[in-house]
Amino acid sequence: MIVRTLKECIQSERRVVSENWESVRMLLKDDNMGFSFHITTIYQDTETHIHYKNHLESVYCVSGSGEIEVVGGKTYPIEPGTLYILDQHDEHYLRAYPGQNMVMACVFNPPLNGQEVHDASGVYPLS
C-alpha cells in the first residue's frame, strides 16, 4: 500500500512549478500503477498552451473557474465539479479566470516520471 499526503508531496521534489501553474505529482511512473495522479493549480489570469501528443489526461476541477479552448474547436467553461477528458490528444488552451486559481485533480496515462514540463509545442516528453 502507498500512502502519501498532499502536504508531504508539496514539500518534496514532487512539486513542479512553472510560470502559469504548479503540479504536485502524488503518484508517478515508478509507483507502478499504470497512471500518474497530480493536484495541479492553474494560476489566475493565465493562459497555457497544451498538446499532450504522448499522453491521455482526465482533469477534474476542484475549485476556481476558467475555460478550455480546443484548437480549431469549441470553448468549454470550467468550474468546480467539471470533468474534461483529453481522449484524442486534443491541442488546447487552458485559461484560469482572474480572481482565483483553479485547482485540478489530474490523471495521466501513460504515467509521468515526475519533473516533466511542457515544451514549446505544449507537449510532455514520452519517457
Rank of each mutant, 00 (worst) to 15 (best):
V24R: 06
L28M: 15
T41R: 07
D30Q: 14
Y93W: 10
H38L: 08
D90S: 12
I78E: 06
G99H: 07
D31P: 00
H89R: 15
S18E: 15
V24N: 10
D90P: 06
I68Y: 01
L56D: 13
K74C: 10
L86P: 07
I68R: 03
N54R: 00
L56Q: 09
E19C: 06
L83Q: 08
G34P: 12
V70L: 15
E79P: 05
H51L: 14
D45V: 06
I78S: 03
E47I: 10
M33P: 09
M104W: 02
H89D: 05
R25N: 10
D31W: 01
L27F: 13
G34K: 11
L27N: 03
T82I: 07
Y76T: 13
S23W: 05
S23L: 08
I85A: 09
D45P: 05
Y97C: 06
D31L: 05
G66W: 00
Y84Q: 01
G73A: 08
H49I: 09
S36I: 04
V62E: 08
G64F: 00
R25D: 00
P80I: 12
D31I: 02
G34Q: 04
M33T: 14
R95I: 14
G73Y: 04
I50L: 11
D90F: 03
M104R: 14
P77F: 02
G66D: 03
M102P: 06
I39T: 14
G66K: 02
K74I: 12
L94H: 00
N54W: 01
T75D: 01
H49A: 14
W21C: 11
N20K: 15
G99L: 04
D90E: 13
H55V: 03
M26E: 05
L83H: 09
Y52Q: 07
H89W: 12
I42M: 09
M33K: 14
V59D: 06
T82S: 10
G34A: 12
D30H: 15
S63Y: 01
T40E: 01
M33D: 06
H89S: 11
G99E: 08
H92L: 15
L28D: 05
Q44S: 11
P80L: 04
Y60G: 08
A96S: 08
V24Q: 11
N32F: 13
L56T: 08
T75M: 01
V24T: 15
T75K: 09
Q88G: 14
V59E: 05
I85F: 14
M26G: 10
Q44D: 08
R95Y: 02
V71P: 02
T82P: 01
S23M: 12
D30K: 14
P98N: 13
E22I: 05
F37S: 03
S18N: 09
I50K: 05
M33L: 15
S18F: 03
T46D: 05
N32K: 13
Y93Q: 13
Y43M: 02
